[in-house]
Amino acid sequence: MYKSPILKWILGVYYGLFLLFLYGPFIVMGILSFQPQNGGPQFPMRGFSIYWYEQLLGIIGTSRAAPLPVGPALVRSLILAFMVMVTSTVLGTITAQAFRHRFKHTGFMFYLVMLGFIVPGVLVGLGVALVSNQLHIDKHWWLTGYIVHVIYTFPFSFLVMLAIFNRFDRSVEEASASLGAGAATTFRKITFPLVFPGILTSLLIAFTLSYDEFPRSIFAGGPQLTLPLTIYGQFGIEIHPNLFAFGVLSTLFSFALLAVFAILIAISVKRRARGRGIQEEIR
């Protein structure tokens, strides 16, 4: 089946079209973000400028379009994403650790955690909003918003750490104990460094998911909007190319994050590779 060259060729062409389908809107958005001041949110291009980027970043004061209120929202989203990624990774690590011991109802616990992403965001937000109304607790992005974000990212952190611990050789921890190190020291000196790539992955995923989250925040996020909520607010009104400029910058930011992650992983891999190099020299 996989040997048929005609089929392979057809599928190859199809894959190209598929990429076009995936990336086409991004490309169009990227081009349109360089519309000049008099250009609209569609073709034709009336020239080429970075006007909308300047407008977005507040370099140009006056404009026919209202500026996107992204500044404070961006700060909130970054702080929130940071809080969420730490909490989610800690919870995910602890819970995955629990799965290393046998216990009854592992299936129940597994799916309880999975519910965090199975239950649609709009329902999670609604439920938390109802409870906070009832208890007269004010909704804030750093309180109720934070809670629902962790519900969403926790399952992903948990899955990453579960996969890491499944491949983890438990005897090194026992070796540490038999050498006299207590549980906390063992975790700090042995377990943590060995599962660090997993922790890094969990941090990255949780950060990205939280940074982009909005269905849960819409009801539970409180009056001060996070970045995605600000953008969602633009859906109802006339859009301008500044939204595209935002899209381009936001996509670049996501990729930058991914690149930082890739570099961090590469450094830890390289460190081991360097060690191997020394060995070769000695031989």
Binding site: D169, S171, V172, E174, A175, S176, A177, S178, L179, G180, A181, G182, A183, T186, K189, I190, P193, L194
Partner: peptide, 29 residues
């Protein structure tokens, strides 16, 4: 608990700490 018994265990798979050097492994305890 194991870490207070002063009983050493040499593991079948050696269970060396892969992220530490030989000297650091020996000094660990």
């Amino acid at each position: 608990p194991a870490h207070l018994r002063n009983v050493g265990l040499v593991f079948q798979n050696f269970a060396l700490f892969p992220h530490l050097k030989v000297g650091q492994n020996i000094a660990y305890g």
